[in-house]
């Protein structure tokens, strides 16, 4: 039941992201809701518990992003999820706003760069600007930080 609910939420979030993108984008960037939730769940619950978010969320991001070969976002989210959990458990012993921001910046950077890396290997051309990357990091942080504390308070 919980799994089905997660799948429905992921599906709706991806469609919402696709609908809102043209209206709320800044420098071609819009908060990646799936990435944000994967980061939050990795910090709070560990990377094993959010596997459905990584697999189904990543799958849908690839299906609806049109450019990525299927599997690119899954792999990128898998890496980001593992690293977020590792850093939150081993480097930042106590979760603070500072550590959430750092994981948000690092997570977005690694996610984006990894996708670019895969596209380069597979030989698919793409558009990349630093302004878009910076805008994406800031936009993700604006959603990530309040959402992290909201979900944290609910989980408790």
């Amino acid at each position: 039941m919980k799994l089905l609910l997660s799948i429905i939420i992921i599906f709706l979030l991806v469609i919402l992201q696709s609908s809102l993108y043209p209206y709320l984008k800044i420098c071609n960037a819009f908060p990646n809701l799936i990435l944000i939730l994967v980061l939050i769940l990795s910090i709070l619950k560990g990377s094993k518990k959010n596997l459905v978010w990584v697999l189904f969320g990543g799958f849908l991001l690839d299906v609806y992003s049109f450019n990525n070969p299927l599997g690119t976002s899954i792999l990128s989210l898998l890496l980001v999820s593992y690293l977020a959990y590792f850093f939150s458990q081993n480097i930042f012993k106590k979760t603070s706003i500072f550590s959430v921001i750092l994981i948000g910046i690092g997570g977005t950077l690694i996610y984006k760069l990894f996708i670019i890396f895969v596209l380069l290997i597979v030989g698919i051309s793409f558009q990349f600007t630093f302004s878009q990357l910076i805008s994406q990091i800031i936009y993700n942080l604006v959603v990530l930080v309040p959402l992290f504390y909201l979900i944290k308070s609910r989980i408790k």
Binding site: Y21, N32, L61, Y64, F66, L119, Q132
Partner: peptide
């Protein structure tokens, strides 16, 4: 009915 929202291409 859909747009590329990862910002890496234009579809």
């Amino acid at each position: 009915i859909g747009r590329d929202f990862q910002g890496l291409e234009k579809y």
